[in-house]
């Protein structure tokens, strides 16, 4: 990629720099010579390590995004938030909940301070709406809350912007774990297979394969029959 065609100004840690247009914030800072030790993770928008806040020019609006996924724009003033502190909430996911709002209030007291401003939804780099999944959780709609929050990368930008000081991504974490473990039914065949393994049922068969000659294994490998790929129509 010919990146040096056009340089645009950005402002980072109080300094003006000119960087090639078309780069992400992360690659632009590296282009300048910054070596990341914090605030850099998967570099592919999948891990939430490079949360960034920025303004552009004289615009009043404070934007949020991931440095690896956000393109530099002329006049951008930015700061990275490599780490968002969150309160440690100790809980168990082993007890059936009968009164969702009461439990959530006990574990996450700030939840009552949500004023419905929607700042969380505007900050989310995954286009999630924490305001909606928190509301669903309070109503005990576990599946809805779990599904609505599933794409969360735990970057914490929602918590950084929340006027009520909620930590929506932590609330969602608890909700999903509780839903997946106790609300959903555990498939019986998984329990059966687990018991078979614990009884050592497959040990002799695997051991026999492990001691079979390479020649015979190669024959067995080529002779495998494959489950039909086209049956993917669930």
């Amino acid at each position: 990629m010919n990146v040096e065609e056009k340089l645009i100004p950005i402002y980072y840690l109080g300094q003006r720099y000119d960087v090639p247009a078309g780069l992400t914030i992360m690659t632009a800072l590296e282009w300048l010579g910054y070596v990341y030790t914090h605030g850099c993770g998967c570099r592919g928008g999948a891990c939430g390590a490079c949360s960034t806040m920025y303004r552009v020019g004289g615009d009043y609006k404070l934007h949020a995004g991931l440095a690896c996924q956000t393109m530099v724009v002329p006049g951008m003033t930015l700061v990275q938030i490599p780490y968002y502190p969150r309160p440690v909430t100790k809980y168990s996911i082993d007890e059936k909940i009968t009164d969702p709002s009461q439990v959530l209030l006990r574990l996450f007291p700030a939840i009552q301070k949500c004023v419905g401003c929607g700042a969380c939804a505007r900050a989310c780099p995954q286009n999630l709406r924490p305001i909606d999944y928190v509301a669903a959780a309070l109503r005990g709609q576990w599946q809805a809350a779990a599904d609505l929050s599933f794409d969360c990368l735990m970057c914490g930008l929602c918590a950084a912007r929340c006027t009520g000081e909620l930590v929506p991504h932590s609330i969602a974490m608890f909700v999903r774990r509780y839903y997946a473990k106790l609300v959903r039914i555990k498939p019986q065949y998984l329990v059966d297979r687990s018991n078979e393994i614990k009884s050592g049922k497959f040990v002799p068969g695997v051991k026999q394969l492990a001691t079979t000659s390479l020649e015979e294994l190669r024959r067995l490998y080529d002779a495998r029959s494959f489950e039909n790929v086209d049956g993917n129509k669930h």
């Binding site: 329990v191 687990s194 393994i197």
Partner: peptide, 18 residues
């Protein structure tokens, strides 16, 4: 291969949303 199914059960029981 022996432990693999136990791991799926372990993850499920920790609250992984398969």
């Amino acid at each position: 291969v022996n432990d693999a199914p136990l791991i799926v059960e372990w993850l499920r029981d920790l609250g992984c949303m398969f």
